[in-house]
Design a protein around this nucleic acid. Structure first.
Lengths: 170, 170
DNA sequence: ATAGCAGATAAGAATGGTTCTTGTCAAGAA
DNA sequence: TTCTTGACAAGAACCATTCTTATCTGCTAT
């Protein structure tokens, strides 16, 4: 990811913190995820700044907005064209780094000038497949103590929004 | 589309009106679109009823929810697996009725059990291509009088929400 | 330097699509 | 009839996102 002060994009400490969190991140975080994580090392960070920065990065093509999840938008710092695998159980999103040569015949093209495509593969991730049947577990947040029932460990606490703090309860 | 009273789904007049509006509709309407149009012939219709009905139809697999547009959810009464063409200018969504044989190699599958896929083709629709350059026009709603500037005729009035009421202003 | 400008920030209000709540009502069962 | 169930309308609540406002900071030209 470019980190230069150029074309009216000022690299402020806040933006740098967001860029650093995003850099190499493969979790497709939502704005709130970014906010909560960057806030740890930058307590005065505002959610509006996260949105502003994401908007600027989007315009500069340094981040891609994913509209896979109807609840919230997710952001992908990986801007090379790629596709996504979506777990229908735990809603996890993972990248697919393979080019598929899909040529849509002119008859189906309906006059459109096609410039790109994106494939969403739906399925069940290995973790959820393993927990296969109806097996349920309770997960507790180490940070705020909230609990949640589910088949897979939630990436993010549904209460306090922290990521990576949920662990399986005996 | 099935129109039978079965498995706890009561075919009330409201639901019938929604089903009739949806049946054969190729415009991928949002909940608000359905609400405004059904309201014409059913003035007491509530937006909550539209959402309830869409939820019920979704659970019964009679309608598919599209999360292509980050602004609002769109509903497609065409439940056969198909793909979509999206105009990046006017945000129009049209169906692509062709099966693409995409087999994702096990190395890329990352342990997922794949059950389906959906391809979004991005491009520019024929209407927007025609208006190619920077040409802009003003469109006025015949219903509420609101005006909007743009390259293509908006399907829906941004103010009153009626569809098909926008026409080009001299 | 100093003033002035442009863009960034924090805080919180506003927006708007979706969901929830409440009270009412109609249809079918007992 | 009375009970139960589900649907309805109206509006409140919710929550992700956007907007507004008032600072604040770092440039630039005077």
């Amino acid at each position: 990811m470019e980190r230069q002060r150029e074309r009216g994009f000022k690299l402020t400490p806040q933006r740098l913190a967001i860029l650093e969190y995003l850099d190499g991140n493969r979790d497709h975080p939502a704005a709130e995820d970014i906010y909560h994580n960057v806030k740890k090392s930058f307590p005065t960070m505002s959610l509006a700044t996260v949105y502003n920065t994401l908007e600027a990065l989007k315009r500069r093509g340094e981040v891609v907005e994913l509209t896979i999840d109807p609840e919230r938008r997710h952001y992908d710092p990986n801007t090379e064209p790629h596709h996504h695998l979506i777990c229908l159980r735990c809603k996890k999103i993972v990248d697919v780094h393979k080019e598929f040569r899909i040529n849509i015949p002119p008859a189906q093209r309906q006059g459109f000038r096609i410039t790109g495509n994106h494939i969403e593969f739906y399925g069940v991730c290995p973790e959820c497949t393993r927990k296969g049947g109806v097996e349920m577990a309770v997960f507790k947040c180490e940070s705020c103590g909230a609990t949640k029932e589910g088949r897979c460990k939630p990436k993010k606490c549904p209460k306090c929004g922290e990521t990576g703090t949920m662990s399986k309860q005996g």
